[in-house]
Nucleic acid binder design. Sequence first.
DNA 1: AAACTCAGTATACGCATGCATACTGAGTTA
DNA 2: TAACTCAGTATGCATGCGTATACTGAGTTT
Lengths: 206, 206
Amino acid sequence: MDKRAEQKAKTRKKLIDCALELSATKGFAALSIREVAQAADVTPAAFYRHFRDMEELGLCLVDEIAVGLRRLLRNSRKESMTKDVKTISEFTIESFLVFVNENSNLFRLLLGERQGASDSFRRAIRKEMDIFVEELTEDLERIAKVKNQTLRHPAFAAEAVVTIVFTLGAEALDLPKFKQDNLKKRIVEEVNMIIRGARMRERKSL
Amino acid sequence: MDKRAEQKAKTRKKLIDCALELSATKGFAALSIREVAQAADVTPAAFYRHFRDMEELGLCLVDEIAVGLRRLLRNSRKESMTKDVKTISEFTIESFLVFVNENSNLFRLLLGERQGASDSFRRAIRKEMDIFVEELTEDLERIAKVKNQTLRHPAFAAEAVVTIVFTLGAEALDLPKFKQDNLKKRIVEEVNMIIRGARMRERKSL
DNA sequence: AAACTCAGTATACGCATGCATACTGAGTTA
DNA sequence: TAACTCAGTATGCATGCGTATACTGAGTTT
C-alpha cells in the first residue's frame, strides 16, 4: 500500500509547518528555502520535490488559513443563527479573535503579505477576502430581511466590516491577552456603527 | 562655508530617494545596503556614514510619508472648511487618493510594513496612524457640534474611517486610473456609513 | 527476483550579502 | 600654511543563498 506517498505527505506537512513557525518570528518574506528545509530536517534539494519555490509554498499557506477561517466563520454563523444582529457580530468577532490568537502565525502571514511585494500573494489574499465579503453580504441581507429592514449597500457594508475586523484584528497579535478586551470592544462598536449606518431610515428628502 | 554638510545632505537625500524608488518594485524589506548604495552611486561603506542599518533608513522614510500626508490632510481640511460633512469626506478622500497615486512608493512602504516583521516599523507606523485618528476625531467632533449633532464614540468612528481609507486606499496601487473611480465611490460610501452610524439618534428604549 | 521509480542525500558552483579594515583627499580650522 | 576632520573609496572576508548535478536506497511494479 502507499507507504511512499504517505511519507511524502508527511515531509510536505513538516515543511509547511516549519515555514509557518519560522514566519512568525522573521516574517514569511524573509524565509529562505535552505532555512525551511533545515528546520524540517531535510536537504535543501528535497524542498524542490514539493514546491517550485518559496512563493508556491506561501500560496499553500494562504490557502490553509483561508480554509481554517472559513470553517470558523461558518460555525460561528450556525451557532449564532437564532440570536439578533448585535449578538451575532459580537459573537463572531469573539471567535475571530480566538482564531487570530490560536493561529497567529498563519494570520500574520495573511495580513503581512496582503500588501506585500509579490503580486501573486496579493491577488490570492484579496481573492480570499472577497469571498469573506461575499459571504458576509449574504448574511447581512438575510438578517436584514428577517428583521424587516433594508440595507443601503450591503456589499459595501460587508466590505467595510471585513476590512475593520481584519485590520484591527491584526493588532491583537501585538497585544497581551488582558489588553485584547479593549480591542474587542472597539471592533464590536465600529462594526455596529457600520451596520447601523447601512440601514435605510424613513424616507426623507435630502 | 558649510559646503561639506551640504554635500552630505545631498548624498543622504539621494540614498533615501533611491531606497524609495527601489522599494516600489521589490518592497522595502527586500532591499540591501549594497543595492541602495549602488543605486545612489556610492560605496556600500559610505552608507554607514548616514544610517546605522536599513531599518534606520526605513524609519526616516516612514517619517517622510507621515509628514507629507499630514500636510495634505491639513490643507484639505482647510480648503473644505465651509462645506458640509458629506462633501468634506468626499473631498478629503479624493485628495487622499491623489496623494496615494503621487507617492505610491512611500505609501506602499507605509502600508506594506504596517504589519511587517520589524517591531520598530510597526510601532512607528501605528504611532503615525494614531495621530491621524486623533486629528480626525477632533474634526468629527467639531463638525458635529456645528451641525448640532452628537456622536456616539467619535474616536472609534475616526479609527474606523482611517482604517477603511488606508486599507482600501492601498488597493488603488494595483488599479489602473480608470478603475479608481469605482474604488473612490466605495470608500466614500463606506465612510459615510460609519459617520451615519456614529450619530446619536432620537432617544429610544432598546 | 529483476527492473524501475522517485523522495531524499551529498556536494559543489557562483553570487550577493553585511561588515571590517585601511586609505584618500577635499573642506575646515587655527 | 600646517594640522585636522570626515564623507566617501578600495578591498577583502565569511556567510548564506538558489540551484544544478550525480547519487542512493527503500518502495513499488512486473
